[in-house]
């Protein structure tokens, strides 16, 4: 079980490296798709089927869309000058990050161990034990999302809403109204 999980995680890392390193845009897109599917399988392993379903659906969609986008472009290879300084700086920062994360990882609960089993007064324990009686929802996840922390969910929905309204505002066709006596609108 845990070995399979590690195999998938290494698969994801390998696919991500391929996506970064390959010079072909299409290969990069496909490797990115492999990352996504690997991630959704990992989600299945750690017991989140709903996230896995969503991830698969989104991955298929993104893959189709990006392949269409790449196929219609003339440029199919990614070229760019490599700055050695940038690589060294990135590696340095990455190394420092890994060192810090190692320190933190030593303190974190072991993988697969739920936080609530370690901490006495954690609300997640209450959610598991009482959500059915208190909210009447059979799915504890939904009980947390839509009753205990419904305000958060409202906020998350608003984040998506804000993002799309912002995108539509930036993609609009006419920027300025025409007005007499003044300079015409730009763009």
């Amino acid at each position: 079980m845990i070995t399979t999980l590690y195999i998938f995680i290494f698969f994801i890392i390998a696919a991500a490296l391929v996506a970064v390193e390959t010079p072909h845009a299409l290969s990069a897109v496909i490797a990115l798709g492999a990352v996504g599917f690997g991630l959704s399988i990992v989600c299945l392993f750690i017991g989140a089927p709903d996230i896995a379903i969503t991830l698969v659906v989104v991955e298929i969609l993104v893959l189709i869309h990006m392949i269409r986008a790449t196929l219609q472009r003339d440029i199919i290879t990614i070229m760019g000058p490599f700055s050695r300084l940038n690589v060294i700086a990135t590696m340095l920062i990455f190394g420092i990050g890994v060192a810090f994360f190692y320190q933190v990882a030593l303190q974190l609960p072991p993988f697969g161990q739920a936080v609530m089993t370690l901490i006495e007064n954690s609300p997640s324990r209450f959610y598991l034990e009482e959500s059915l009686n208190q909210t009447g929802a059979a799915s504890a996840i939904t009980a947390v999302l839509l009753d205990f922390r419904a305000y958060d969910t409202l906020g998350e929905a608003t984040v998506i809403f804000t993002a799309i309204i912002g995108a539509l505002a930036l993609l609009r066709r006419t920027v300025k109204r025409e007005r007499k006596g003044k300079g015409a609108g730009d763009a």
Binding site: D152, G155, E156, T158, V159, T162, A163, I165, G166, A167, A169, L170, R172, V175, D186, A187
Partner: peptide, 20 residues
Amino acid sequence: FVFLEIASIASYALVGYRRG
């Protein structure tokens, strides 16, 4: 964090609102 993101995302779009 959630509300911080709402405010931030709205402000990203508003900064570019004149779209030059």
